[in-house]
Each structure stands twice: as structure tokens, then as C-alpha cells.
């Protein structure tokens, strides 16, 4: 059974998975999530350590940081998204990797972000992991509700249509640029807000938190969990965050095994763990239980 601390990390993983999933649901392979995650985390670390909190911080202040981080990442994502979202497929993926690297080097070199060691002693709003579980779990539940609603909304259907055929969608009179940008901005905001929680939970923040490795891992959450419904990235994020910890007994081999999972997962489960067929089966099973 995972301990409470691991549970927080698993939930944060699920949130990041959802952040990668959002643009993908509109057919856009963006790996920008770690960049916005790093921006959110750095912002929280700066705001929390500059005000004098004597080691603790009120929940209200953390929520305010989340609002500011959300606004900042939304602005940033709009600015970056407008030119970048004209790119397709592998080009968009490479452009967003570039963004991740630029943000990482910037955080490493800016005079006020603590260089390679980063920012220490970020005050804690909770004295027990249970508080973090409630906060991040609450956010995850909220996201689950929002994603479920999204699937039947106008925007969600437009995203699915773009994923299937962007040109046809545009011909139907849908402003595809706006839909793609909405998905990109929402993904950035979710990553930024998750970064705020992570910075407080980890107590320290540095440039490594948003590196290319994170882009790989979060993408793996979606691919292995399944990219056809929002449940996929959630399950993928929870499982794959727990996996390296569960593999701790094998010591140095755990990262090799983690790599093998990423390598062989798409070969054996091309649609991920949560497939449309599985969801349909689940739906029929629920229907049967409701109507005996």
C-alpha cells in the first residue's frame, strides 16, 4: 500500500497527465506541459519565500498563488500558442520541446531563481500529507467532472472533430484555431496550478523539475494510460508515478525497467490500458445494473 506522500505524487502525476491529454484530445501533440509546470512552481516558490511566512503559509495564500499562476500561464500559453499551433505533428512536438528547454535554461540562469540549487524552504500550508491529498485530490476530482462535461460539450466535440479531421472540421465552420488554442491554454493552466501544489509539497524547487525527462514521463502517462478518454491519462499518471517507487527494491535497475515499460507498452497495448472498447464494456455493465 503506498504511503501518503506517494499518494500526493501520484495525484500530481495524474494532473500532469491530464494536462498533456488536453491538446492531444484536439489532435495536437504538445510536450509543453513541463514548461508551464516549471513556471507555476517557480512562481509559487518566489511568492511564498518572498513574503515572510515563518515556515507556514495559509491555504488562502496558496490558493491565491494558484490563481496568479493560472493567469500567468494562460497569458504565456496564448502568446506562445498562437504561432506554435500552426505547426503539425512532429513539428509541434519539437517546438514544444524547445519551449521546455528554453524555460529550463531561463530558470537556471535568471538572477532571482536560485540557479542550479534552486529555491529552498518553501513554506508549507499543511503539516501532514493528508492536507495535500485533499487539495490535489480535490483538484483532480474537479478536473474529472470538468473533463466528463467537456466530452459532451460543444468545445469537446469540436476538439474530437479536429482530432479526426482538422480540415473537415474547418469546413464545418468551426474556428479550429480558437479550439486548439483553448485546449492548449487550459493544458498550460492545469500544469501551472499543479506546479504550485508541487512546489509547496516538495518544499524546494529548481530548474530540473521541468526538464525534457518530465516531458517524456508525462507523455508516457497518456500513451500508456490511453489517449482516447480522460480516464487514460489519470490511470497512467497514477500507475507510472507509483511504478518507480514500487520498483525501489530492485535498486538501480528500476529506471531500466521504467524505460522498458515505455518501450514495450505501446507495442503490446497500442491504445493504452483504457481503450474505447473497455469503456464501452464498462458503460454496458453500468446500464445493466441500472435497469435490471
Amino acid at each position: 500500500m503506498p504511503d501518503n506522500g506517494l499518494l500526493v505524487q501520484m495525484i500530481l502525476g495524474a494532473l500532469l497527465g491530464l494536462s498533456v491529454y488536453l491538446p492531444m484530445a484536439a489532435g495536437q501533440l504538445s510536450l509543453a506541459t513541463p514548461a508551464f509546470y516549471a513556471v507555476g512552481g517557480t512562481l509559487a516558490a518566489l511568492m511564498a519565500t518572498h513574503a515572510d511566512h515563518q515556515g507556514t503559509i495559509s491555504l488562502g495564500a496558496v490558493l491565491w498563488e494558484m490563481v496568479v499562476a493560472g493567469a500567468l500561464t494562460a497569458a504565456l500559453a496564448t502568446l506562445v500558442g498562437l504561432p506554435v499551433l500552426r505547426l503539425r505533428g512532429i513539428y509541434l512536438a519539437i517546438a514544444t520541446i524547445a519551449l521546455v528547454e528554453i524555460v529550463r535554461v531561463a530558470i537556471l540562469n535568471l538572477p532571482f531563481t536560485g540557479g542550479a540549487t534552486g529555491i529552498f524552504g518553501i513554506p508549507q500550508p499543511f503539516h501532514h500529507p493528508l492536507g495535500y491529498i485533499t487539495l490535489s485530490g480535490g483538484l483532480l476530482a474537479l478536473c474529472g467532472w470538468a473533463f466528463q462535461r467537456l466530452e459532451t460539450s460543444r468545445l469537446g466535440r469540436a476538439m474530437a472533430a479536429i482530432r479526426d479531421d482538422e480540415l473537415a472540421t474547418r469546413c464545418m465552420g468551426i474556428n479550429t484555431t480558437r479550439v486548439k488554442l483553448s485546449a492548449f491554454v487550459a493544458s498550460a493552466v492545469l500544469a501551472g496550478v499543479t506546479g504550485v501544489i508541487a512546489a509547496h509539497y516538495l518544499n524546494t524547487w529548481n530548474a530540473r523539475q521541468g526538464s525534457f525527462d518530465v516531458a517524456i514521463t508525462t507523455l508516457a502517462f497518456v500513451i500508456l494510460g490511453g489517449s482516447r478518454s480522460w480516464l487514460g491519462p489519470v490511470i497512467g499518471g497514477l500507475l507510472l508515478t507509483a511504478l518507480p517507487e514500487l520498483l525501489r527494491p530492485v535498486g538501480d535497475l528500476r529506471l531500466v525497467l521504467f524505460g522498458l515499460v515505455i518501450l514495450l507498452g505501446p507495442v503490446f497495448f497500442p491504445q493504452g490500458l483504457i481503450t474505447p472498447a473497455l469503456l464501452e464494456k464498462l458503460g454496458r455493465w453500468k446500464l445493466r445494473r441500472l435497469k435490471p
Binding site: 505533428g89 507523455l219 508516457a220 500513451i223 529506471l255 531500466v256 522498458l260 515505455i262 514495450l264
Partner: peptide
């Protein structure tokens, strides 16, 4: 083809580790 991006990343992770 997107999937081969993930699998080749995985191969890289295995090799480096």
C-alpha cells in the same frame, strides 16, 4: 508514427540507465 516517438524514448532511457 507518434507511438514510435515514445518507444524510441523508452529505448533511450533503457540504454542510458
Amino acid at each position: 508514427p507518434l507511438l514510435s516517438l515514445i518507444t524510441s524514448l523508452g529505448a533511450g532511457v533503457v540504454l542510458v540507465n
